[in-house]
């Protein structure tokens, strides 16, 4: 059973997750048609910047985060920005969007000069997230858990981060049992996505280098 305190924690995270989203005007640009590869590149750069700002605003609401050592806050955000960005965009991709929008988005990304060998793992990840049909609470908690990963580079006080991540994992585990009684492996599958996210991190670094070159 989820305790009252755990329910309150979950509510704080979900409210912050819903409050901090990419501004509508920025997101709308993604759906305007006819952009050249260069314009797509600039648009995706603007989207990435906006997602990082949204990520920081969301993260400030995670109980205990702002009381962490300041440099550790930077290390956690820097270490998780790419993963949190892919987690969030995966959820955008798997939402029921008006017909055609997903295709327009996919087309835009395919035509932005990103190499194929990076595209495939990214869209595979979007598909595997979509198949999980996560509810909002699961998405918000998984994002918070991704950010509070203790073993990011340059994090000095890993125990302090673990003390923040632990209660999140516990609430998410209970939530998965309640939400998916017929799927005992569901929680494990969610955590499996975090491992997949880490490989995307590696691809993303390579993708940026190749993007800069062409």
């Amino acid at each position: 059973e989820i305790t009252k305190a755990q329910r309150a924690l979950m509510k704080v995270i979900v409210d912050a997750y819903n409050r901090h989203k990419i501004p509508q005007d920025v997101a709308k640009k993604l759906l305007q048609d006819q952009y050249s590869a260069e314009e797509n590149f600039l648009l995706l750069t603007e989207m990435a910047t906006s997602q990082v700002q949204v990520l920081v605003e969301f993260t400030k609401n995670i109980p205990g985060f702002l009381s962490l050592n300041h440099e550790d806050q930077i290390a956690l955000l820097k270490g998780s920005a790419v993963e949190a960005m892919f987690l969030r965009s995966a959820q955008v991709f798997s939402q029921k969007m008006p017909n055609g929008h997903t295709e327009v988005l996919e087309e835009r990304i395919r035509k932005s000069g990103i190499s194929e060998e990076f595209m495939t793992p990214m869209f595979n990840f979007y598909k595997s997230i979509g198949e999980l049909h996560m509810i909002e609470e699961e998405q918000a908690l998984l994002t918070a858990i991704t950010i509070l990963t203790p073993d990011r580079p340059f994090v000095k006080d890993q125990q302090a981060v673990e003390r923040l991540q632990e209660p999140m994992l516990e609430v998410l585990r209970k939530l998965c049992v309640l939400q998916h009684p017929q799927e005992p492996q569901y929680f494990a599958r969610l955590l499996g996505r975090l491992t997949e996210l880490r490989t995307l991190n590696h691809y993303h670094a390579e993708m940026l280098t190749s993007w800069r070159m062409n």
Binding site: T49, V52, V56, I74, L77
Partner: peptide, 21 residues
């Protein structure tokens, strides 16, 4: 605008709370 700042700059700026480009 923020979009040509590095990742860490954007994070530091956002953490300090001033978001204007």
């Amino acid at each position: 605008p923020a979009s040509n700042l590095g990742l860490e700059d954007i994070i530091r700026k956002a953490l300090m709370g001033n978001l204007e480009e």
